[in-house]
Each structure stands twice: as structure tokens, then as C-alpha cells.
Design a protein around this nucleic acid. Structure first.
Lengths: 136, 136
DNA sequence: ACTCAATAGTTACCATGATAACCAAAGGAG
DNA sequence: CTCCTTTGGTTATCATGGTAACTATTGAGT
């Protein structure tokens, strides 16, 4: 890339390391786009998918609080709030009051949510696998 | 990650490949955040930085059309338009009419733009180098 | 019991990416 | 020259990320 020429000028860091970092970022953003395209073709997004996954994968529980999802997903509270709202509206999640904390709610997958999650997974891994095969 | 368990269920792709892809995406997004933080502390952004770089690095010319920047940067026209507007407002770029095409304009770095670009580069490579050293 | 910090969730607003649709100028085909 | 497509740029609108600031409840310390 055109940036490499700068490294020697600045004297900071090592050209190959910086080039590798830029390459990793480029590769990752390409895959991100492929996945975004896959999800948006199904009226979903990566975040919606991760929310469904993290609830589905929870051992011993079939529901999580918003705050628990927050801890697992590294996303801000407002974004999670908004996205959970969309999933509720689309009928993939249900929300019940938490019996132990009147501030909180518990979020669980609906049958439709489970069905859609199961239907999405093969294409998700397929997309990743196909992309990775093309990489050097 | 919690996703790995799904791969064997779906039978698509190879666990290690998918895990590696997820790891690359995670690593890249962490570095992206570091760079975003670095740039925003200087009232810049990665895109603004790339725009300055791509003009500065142009051989034989000290200015580019918006459309030429577009070809080099893989960004949508409206986003480029908006961001170039911010750089003009901040005095890092100047815009002149293109003598060969009355629809177009030529964008060039101001002295301040050149100064800021030079001041930013060491921290940019430093940020990348430090991050990469921490990676396994 | 009372006070106060921490936590769960929400709202308002900003940043930065995209698409669709548009105008004006350029440029080729006839 | 005229028509029509392409190109350069702009506007409007949406999607998805963030922070700051707010309410309401919980819970710990006195």
C-alpha cells in the first residue's frame, strides 16, 4: 500500500509489522462486509445474530438480562437496547419481567428466533469458510 | 469463543478456519478502536487521515479530484463529500475549480494540512507497532 | 430507617458508514 | 448539432456504532 513508504521516514516501528497490521485490517473489513451482506439479505445484522447466539448458547438458562448480554458482547447499552427492541418487534425475542429485580427484564428466544438462528448458521460458516479459502 | 461449538453441528467448514477468521476480525476491530481513539484525540478520523495521505502521496500531482480519491479509497461518494467538507472547514484542504472540467474541483493539502499529517504519522505507526507486539 | 453509591434500563444526540435519487457538465453516436 | 449515456458532485435518508445524562430500583453502610 502507499503508506509503507512513510514508516522509514518516521523511524518508528518496523515496516513488515505495520504492513501486516494493515493487511489484517483490510482482510477483516472485507469479511465483515461479506457477513453484513449475508445478514442484511435476511433482514438481520451481525449484532442481532450475536444477541441470538449468546442467549441460545447460555448454559443452564434460556434467557438473559440486557445487562448480561452487554457483558458478553462488548457493545454499548444504548445500541443493545435499540437492537433488542428490533428483535422484539420482529418476534425473535420475548421479554418478561425479572422476578428478582423490578428494574430488569429477561430476554428469551421465541420459537421463531430459534428457527431463524438455526437456519442462518450454515450460511454464516459457509461465508467465512469460502472467504478464508481465498486468502493467501 | 462460544460460537465454535456450532461448527460441528452444521457440518459446514472447518472449526480451525472459522476460529481463525473470528480471531482476525476481533484483532482487527481492537486495532481499529485504538486508531479511532488516537485520531479522535486529535480531532481527526481514520478516513480524514486516509484522505490526507492519498493526496500527499500522489506522484506528479499535489491535488486530486474527489472522484480520484474515491477510486483510491473505497468509500462511498456521499461519505467522501461530507468528510472532505469537514477537512475544508478545518483548513486542512483547499478546493480549486478544475480547469479541465467545470463540474469538478481539485483538492490539495494546505500548509496546515501538511503539518498536521506529518505530526500524526509517528503516533499512528507507534500505535500499530505497540498493538502488534502484544499479539501472539 | 436513612442516605448514598451502584446498577438496569432508557432517552437524546452525535459520528461515520451506506443507498437512492438528483442536477449539471462532458462526450460519443447519429 | 442533437440526443443520450456517462461522469462529477450533491442532497436526503437510513443503519449502526458511540457518549452523556437521566430515572428508578437495589443494596450497602451507618
Amino acid at each position: 500500500m502507499m503508506i509503507d513508504g512513510y514508516v522509514s521516514q518516521t523511524g518508528v516501528g518496523d515496516v513488515d509489522t505495520v504492513a501486516r497490521a494493515l493487511s489484517v485490517m483490510r482482510e477483516a473489513s472485507q469479511l465483515q462486509r461479506l457477513l453484513d451482506a449475508y445478514f442484511s439479505s435476511l433482514n438481520l445484522s451481525q449484532l442481532k445474530f450475536h444477541i441470538l447466539i449468546v442467549i441460545d448458547r447460555e448454559p443452564d438458562m434460556d434467557s438473559l438480562r440486557q445487562s448480561e448480554i452487554n457483558q458478553r458482547l462488548d457493545i454499548s447499552k444504548p445500541v443493545l437496547h435499540r437492537t433488542v427492541g428490533a428483535l422484539l418487534k420482529d418476534g425473535l425475542l420475548v421479554r418478561r419481567d425479572d422476578p428478582e429485580d423490578s428494574r430488569a427484564h429477561r430476554l428469551a428466544l421465541t420459537d421463531e428466533g430459534k428457527t431463524i438462528l438455526a437456519a442462518i448458521l450454515p450460511g454464516y460458516f459457509e461465508t467465512i469458510s469460502v472467504f478464508m479459502e481465498k486468502q493467501p
